[in-house]
Write a protein that binds this DNA or RNA. Structure first.
Lengths: 333, 333
DNA sequence: TTGTAGGCGTTATCAG
DNA sequence: CTGATAACGCCTACAA
């Protein structure tokens, strides 16, 4: 494998000149640039990425922390990220995380500066314990679809999304609207819900009764959604509409409701959240999150942070949108 | 950020000793190892991954080429890959590919040795034009779920899978079984189909009539599957069962059939392929491919190749399996 | 068992 | 504009 030295020798110039040509410096005469380019071509020379990373103290690699519960949305985010990465020479390193321990490892690894120039974390908060080191080491980092006071983030405003769903249900006539939420930090099931505030505020603003018994918090899975429905179904005055915090949960809810012999949307309306591929296939009414855009914008933000460190953590919201399909209808009188 | 020099100084030893401790060499006295470990701890020292990669001429990174059409199966493969990667210090670099040009770039980049120690390509063949350089540069590479005479691969035997599907349909009484295939090379739509041979052989072996009019080749999408069904439906003697080369296609077929007012499985039986999450949700009878296992075994194979170069390209087959759900039934007399 | 010196392929910093 | 030359941080002989 030819090195920069070989090229310099072949072109009859110093390695400095070759390096300048390689990096598009204007400080090279056309004549020499020509000769260098020729030599590169003839030798089939490719600069070594590791040597470069070593030399310029920049890896041109971004890290991506992916929780497995994200499901099919992953490919969408990935598309957005790659859109922002197109042709700027950056690559993506992936770490999947399955549980809290994985998460801690992954964030820890990001802090250990050197592997990458920055990190993207999807749908997932960094553990508070690692936060100091994380911010201390100055690894640029952007959170996607979750927000945190001290870290930059891009995502939808979950409270606004919940409001959208609740207002829609109210508009088509529902008054008994329940919430099947998900914990803000998926690895912290006892914490606050992600749509909680938006749901309550929207209900109150609409003059609808806010009752604790109408709020459930469930994991991001179909069975969890189904379980939440069963519990809601036992209420003396059961809800006629349910707003879920994910499409998975919503699908579980729909299945369970139909399993009880209820009609959806006849006896129960259900709104999902995210507009995953599944929602489309199954005709689920849902609040769409612009997942691809989130990936793109977050990556742009991160690249900015890599180029210009020390910017204050920004939070950018992308608008969510109601997608009407087949799981909502007016309640039967 | 502390370097190995700082550690050596703090521990009062040479950098060689520190390096040995770092790499678990037995050639260090317990006393010194203790001191070094302490210094590392106190300084919060972390060896630089790039410097290491530079020094030992091994990046400890594997590259993964992912075609977007893979869909939700991706996360599953990823799980398998990470299983094999667990705790051996390897990371995963991802390149998504959307079209033939992307693919060419991606394979090209892998050849440019240095970015990674080896590459995994999913559901996708390298372009023949790149093959020489690829094999020439000696980048270890393993193909997943496609096979090639000159490159190592791990996947299911598509012909065996097709046979499984056909035999099942025949067993429950079908005689007019059609195939909606996919091209072996997705970016080469005109090429041979991936299940073609298995389908024809199985039909012949069962004494069923093999007719060209019963074979369609479609893209890996629902609309493509739907289109194939429409075309099949116009036949004077339409098939009573259809074997598809992917779950997506199968779902498109089912939708289109129901759109025509046909009952599935009453009027038409459909078998999918892969057992994606969707197949489960929609109750699609399908041939399951052990996707996670494929990821795991392929990665193991690749790691072997990285450690011991120049092994002859091996092809490993994983068994596929029939999953009976709700889209197949006996034909009406 | 230990320390020291050289090398890895670039980039960056100088004098010219 | 150009060419030496010194980092960069670690690994690996080699010598002690």
């Amino acid at each position: 494998v030819p090195t920069i030295d070989d090229v310099a020798r072949a072109a009859g110039v110093g390695i400095g000149t070759v390096s300048r040509v390689l990096n598009g410096s204007p400080l090279v005469s056309d004549a020499l640039r020509e000769r260098v380019l020729l030599a590169i071509e003839q030798l089939g020379y490719r600069p070594s990425p590791v040597a470069r990373a070593f030399g310029r103290r920049r890896t041109h690699v971004l890290e991506l922390l992916v929780p497995l519960f994200i499901g099919p949305l992953f490919l969408q985010v990935l598309r957005g990220i790659e859109e922002a990465l197109a042709d700027n020479g950056y690559s993506l390193l992936i770490h999947t995380v399955q549980d809290a321990a994985d998460r801690d490892h992954a964030f820890e690894a990001c802090c250990a500066r050197g592997q990458s120039d920055g990190a993207l974390a999807l749908w997932m908060l960094p553990p508070e314990s690692r936060l100091e080191r994380l911010l201390g080491d100055g690894v640029p980092m952007v959170l996607l679809n979750v927000s945190h006071a001290r870290v930059a983030s891009v995502g939808v405003d979950h409270d606004a999304s919940a409001r959208l769903a609740v207002e829609y249900c109210a508009r088509i006539g529902h008054r008994r609207i329940a919430l099947v939420d998900r914990p803000l930090d998926v690895f912290e099931p006892e914490g606050t819900g992600i749509c909680e505030r938006g749901y309550r505020d929207a209900m109150a603003d609409l003059g609808l009764r806010v009752r604790e018994t109408y709020e459930r918090k469930a994991a991001l899975s179909q069975p969890a959604g189904a379980a939440a429905l069963e519990s809601l179904a036992e209420l003396p005055e059961r809800p006629t509409a349910i707003v879920a915090a994910s499409d998975e949960q919503a699908i579980g809810i729909v299945h369970a409701a139909r399993g009880r012999g209820w009609q959806v949307p006849g006896d129960l309306s259900v709104v999902g959240y995210s507009d995953s591929q599944l929602a489309d296939y199954l005709g689920l009414t849902t609040i769409a999150a612009p997942v691809r855009e989130i990936g793109r914008e977050a990556t742009r933000l991160l690249l900015d942070a890599v180029a210009t460190p020390a910017a204050a953590p920004r939070t950018i919201y992308q608008p969510s949108e109601l997608i009407v399909r087949g799981t909502c209808g007016s309640p039967r009188p």
